[in-house]
Amino acid sequence: MITILGAGVAGLCVATALAERGLPVEVVDNGPAHGGASWLAGGMIAPYVEAETAAPDVARLGASAADWWAVRVPGVVRRGSLVVAPARDRAELDRFASRTTGHRRLDAEAIATLEGDLAGRFASALFYADEAHLDPRAALVALADGLRQRGVAIRSNTPLDPEQADIDCRGIAARADLPSLRAVRGEMLLLHCPSVTLTRPIRLLHPRFPVYVVPRGHALYMIGATMLESDDPGPITLRSAMELMSAAFTLHPGFAEAAIVETGSGLRPAFADNVPRIVKAGGRWHLNGLYRHGFLTAPALAEQLADQFALAPQEAAVAH
């Protein structure tokens, strides 16, 4: 039996990849069924947009992520993503365009055709047609359901000595075993706003805080996310909430009437280069450091790790 510790996006992707190879697997999580950084994710499958700051490895790992999700969970929306900037920050849009590929530039008319509610609001945008998004919570629930259907046990609120695990996917909780792992605090809002209709993730560039709005369906919108080099797991700060809200309002004034359904904050696990990786430490495998790219990079990493277990079980297995 392969025991995976951590039922976030990393743990569930690895469990799925192992189960699909016919290997016996179980998932154990110290915490509640829904929580941790994955539960607060944006759910953008945006390898091109993320390449603005992310290392090339992230885009490479994420290239097939949308396909991976689409065959395993419902609700993967492949409508691309948009990057816009307020008129005074046009230079930022040019800079963003020069740093990324996979986009084409839209004028005001084309923006209005794509997202009717943005008509007349932006003179120019970048459209990344091949990107996708999903509802991370629905995706995690669907992965867990799929695993249970295969007979895989998923036990939350179950304390387990990490040394009993074969694969450790605890995120920032594994920091004691991975000293190079650090926390990057993120904060988000969930809004209910029937008066605004947006159908794809939209990133608003601003020199001080890039913010994205991801539609979740049923008039729900996720607004995220701050990036703070901080270990503080506490509630969202007023400043962050204000920045996220003002960005949403800049994108569309209709958000002024939105109901704030939820605020969230959590700690992303990240290595110094912000690139996730599989490492062996403390006698077990770790898949960690997913940073802000969990749903983008977890599938490819999970497949890599599962291949190791399937092809060379003796080498991959850890003696207890």
Partner: peptide, 16 residues
């Protein structure tokens, strides 16, 4: 900005 509360010099970023 980086740690409004709970500031500690042991933070991973500051250690780096």
């Amino acid at each position: 900005r980086e740690a409004a509360r709970g500031a500690t010099a042991g933070n991973g970023f500051w250690s780096l």
